[in-house]
Nucleic acid binder design. Sequence first.
DNA 1: CACGAGACCTGTTCGC
DNA 2: TGCGAACAGGTCTCGT
Length: 267
Amino acid sequence: MPELPEVETIARSIRPELVGKTILSADLLWAPTLAAPSVKQFKQQVQGQKVRDVSRRAKYLDIVLKDFHLLIHLRMSGDIMIRSSKVVPEKHDRLLLNLSSRKYLAFNDTRKFGRVWFTHDPESVLAKLGPEPLESGFTSRWLFENLRKHKRQLKPLLLDQTFIAGLGNIYTDECLHMAKLHPLSLSKDVSRKQAEALCEAIQSVLKEGIRRNGASIDWVYRGGEYQNHFRVYDREGEPCLMCGAKIQKLTVGQRGTHVCPKCQRLR
DNA sequence: CACGAGACCTGTTCGC
DNA sequence: TGCGAACAGGTCTCGT
């Protein structure tokens, strides 16, 4: 579920609920959710911490505390919600943070892939990430020059968080379609002009995702509506909005991949 | 270095 | 209707 726009949406929605509040205690309902440190140390040290800020880096949520950072990665099925203390926890809640506002933050994660880090030094977790696509360092020039350094299939490279941070399966398909590039084309063959189109596509698709509060599919719904505006993702057999050709689904890097066979030619 | 397969999990949908 | 297979927004590790 959560790619950059979804995580950004969550960060924005929980920020006003958290900033200035104090974490009174934590309940860890599924121990492996906590990647580091030990359960004991975490519970001890998180208690009494006041929330300074809530931000996002790539697909990580960064809850900035007085002396620590609480980094949360939602992976495939994670979600965050703030509930009144009167409301009982849900079946797939993995971590609860009890707040001074008589509410609690619940990290709910059906598939248990999500992870949480509690650390003084966020860079110990985030160091390998590539640039944020919506920040100023990310330009078509940067993209062109760095695509050229690799001889890789375009889609797996865009999904590689050490190359660019924040794209996932949905938004990558959408970006490649908008830029009229085939997911299997080789990164080093992308022209300067194509890199410009791709850079533009990445920024506009992510911004649209954020503007629409992310995408919500299947049983997980958070109020986003970008799923109603997909150009290719989950539209196999339906007409391309640009040319009318039927959208095809293929597998690239073991991920379901959607392309318009007319707009996105492979060489 | 690049890539595919398998692992980690649970739930829903698909195909017979 | 029932039941197993396939598949799902992510990332890591291993073998080739």
